[in-house]
Amino acid sequence: MLLGGDDVVEAAHDLSAAVRAIDWQATGQTSGTLEEWRELHRGAFRAINNFHEAARTDLGVLGSVTGEKHPERALLLPASRREGNQSSG
Rank of each mutant, 00 (worst) to 15 (best):
L34F: 08
W24F: 10
R20N: 12
T30Q: 09
L2Y: 13
R42D: 10
L2G: 15
L59V: 04
G89L: 10
G4H: 03
R42W: 06
K69E: 11
N85Q: 14
E10F: 03
R42A: 11
G5N: 14
T57A: 12
A55H: 07
D23H: 14
W37C: 04
V61G: 04
A54P: 01
G4P: 01
Q29R: 15
V9G: 00
V9C: 03
V19I: 15
R20Y: 09
S87Q: 07
F45W: 07
G28Y: 11
D23Y: 12
R46T: 10
H41P: 00
E35A: 15
Q29I: 05
A54L: 02
H13P: 00
A18D: 01
N85S: 14
R46K: 14
G63F: 11
H41S: 09
D14R: 13
T27W: 12
E39C: 01
G63C: 13
R46G: 05
L3P: 02
G5Q: 06
L62K: 11
V65A: 04
L3G: 10
G60T: 08
A17T: 15
G67Y: 04
L34M: 11
N85H: 15
A74C: 02
L34D: 10
L76W: 12
A44V: 02
E72A: 14
S88W: 08
Q86V: 14
V61N: 06
A44F: 02
Q86Y: 08
G5A: 08
G84L: 07
D6V: 15
A21Q: 08
R38H: 14
T27E: 13
R46V: 07
A17K: 15
G60N: 07
R82C: 09
L75G: 05
S87G: 10
H52F: 03
G60A: 07
T57K: 11
L62E: 12
G4S: 05
E36Y: 02
E39Y: 01
G4D: 03
A18I: 04
E36S: 04
M1I: 12
L34E: 08
E10S: 08
R73Y: 07
A74W: 01
L62S: 14
Q25K: 13
S88D: 10
L59D: 06
R73M: 13
P71T: 00
A21M: 10
L62A: 15
L34W: 06
G89S: 11
A18L: 04
V19D: 11
R38I: 07
H13V: 13
R56G: 02
E10I: 03
D23L: 10
N49C: 02
D14H: 12
W37Q: 10
A18Q: 01
E35N: 11
R20E: 13
V9H: 01
R56N: 03
S64N: 09
G67I: 06
D14E: 14
D58V: 07
N50S: 15
D7G: 04
E39R: 06
H41C: 06
I48T: 00
D58Q: 10
V61L: 14
P71A: 01
S64V: 05
V65W: 08
G84D: 05
E36M: 04
A79M: 04
G60S: 08
R82V: 07
L2S: 13
I48H: 01
G60H: 05
